Every structure is written in structure tokens, then in C-alpha cells.
Simulated scan of single mutants.
Amino acid sequence: MFSIRLARSGDAVLGSSVSLGRITADGLDEAFEAPTSEWDEAAYRASWRSELQRILDGADRAVLLTLVVDPLSANWLRGYVLYRLGNEIRIQERLFFANELDHEIDLANPSRSVPTYESVNEDGVRISEWVTSLGELRDFFEIEYGVAEGE
């Protein structure tokens, strides 16, 4: 079963509020804090919906951002990258550092900053990843958004 949700608002952290979230998939069950000073909960959810729609429509990659902060105060974002390999979805947690990209991070199209799929890093070390199915993503999408993909 796949899901990503914001559960409830948390306490103020370093002067900004956060929402507590959770992502689950086969073997993956992680909590995260999503700062809501730059993006509110609705913005995170809208981005997730758009990115899930991309992957369901056939894109080979998407990213579910879980940490978006003011780009003037931080030069990085965090999220879970989804790679579509046929009917299999591989999920990798990733930090996106602005100085490592050849372009500015586009929050309206965050998938643009996702590199091609690799299962090992430049040092030959296996990248941690979790696997779920396209069907699990589709089921979550239909339950969470009340529509079949593409509608």
C-alpha cells in the first residue's frame, strides 16, 4: 500500500510552523516534518497530486516534495523521488541542492530537477530505495483525490 499524507500541524520550529506527515509503501514507513512558512499544506498536497498524475500518465519520474523553504534562506529541498520502471515504482529519498543543479529549482515543475534513475551512487554504493507498484499508486490516487487518474 502506498500513501503520503500530512497528518496534523506541529509546533513552531526555528520560528516557522511545520506539519507532520507520513509516507508509506512496501517496506517504507517514515514520518517527516513539512515546514509551512513557504508552502502551506494545500500547496504540498496540490504538488503531490500533480506529480502523482504525471507518473500515472506515463512519466518516468516525479518528486513528492516534503520540505520547501524560502530559497533565500536555504539552498536545498527534500522529497521522495518516484521512478517508474514499467509497472514498478522505485522510491528514493533525495535532497536537492541548488548549487548542484544547472538550473533554478522550479517548484511548479519539480520533476525537472530529478536525475535519471540510478540504483548505485558515484562511489558504487547501493542507493536506498523502496519498491511499490503502479497499481498501488493508482489506488491511493483514486482514494485520496476521489477520481481516477486523468480526470
Score class of each variant (00 low, 15 high):
149 E>T: 08
68 V>E: 11
136 E>S: 04
76 W>E: 07
11 D>W: 01
129 E>Y: 09
98 A>Q: 10
53 Q>C: 08
97 F>W: 15
22 R>A: 11
31 A>V: 10
149 E>N: 09
21 G>N: 03
100 E>Q: 05
25 A>P: 00
8 R>K: 04
109 N>T: 13
108 A>S: 15
114 V>T: 14
9 S>N: 05
30 E>P: 01
71 P>Y: 07
46 A>P: 02
112 R>K: 12
23 I>P: 01
130 W>D: 00
42 A>C: 00
109 N>F: 15
89 I>F: 11
140 F>P: 06
135 G>L: 09
15 G>Q: 11
32 F>S: 06
84 R>H: 11
102 D>M: 06
14 L>I: 06
111 S>T: 05
145 Y>P: 02
47 S>V: 00
75 N>L: 04
42 A>S: 09
26 D>G: 05
19 S>N: 04
146 G>E: 13
8 R>A: 03
143 I>P: 02
7 A>W: 05
113 S>W: 11
53 Q>P: 02
37 S>M: 05
8 R>G: 00
6 L>N: 02
43 A>P: 01
117 Y>F: 13
70 D>I: 10
147 V>H: 06
93 E>P: 01
84 R>P: 10
48 W>I: 07
49 R>A: 15
121 N>E: 01
22 R>H: 14
35 P>Y: 12
9 S>L: 04
106 D>I: 12
108 A>F: 10
68 V>G: 10
39 W>V: 05
50 S>A: 13
71 P>D: 12
69 V>K: 15
75 N>G: 10
101 L>F: 14
37 S>G: 13
70 D>F: 14
6 L>K: 02
139 D>S: 11
106 D>M: 10
115 P>M: 07
54 R>F: 07
62 A>V: 09
138 R>M: 09
58 G>F: 14
77 L>W: 15
139 D>L: 10
5 R>N: 09
70 D>P: 12
124 G>S: 03
107 L>G: 03
60 D>E: 12
35 P>E: 11
133 S>N: 01
133 S>C: 00
1 M>R: 07
138 R>C: 12
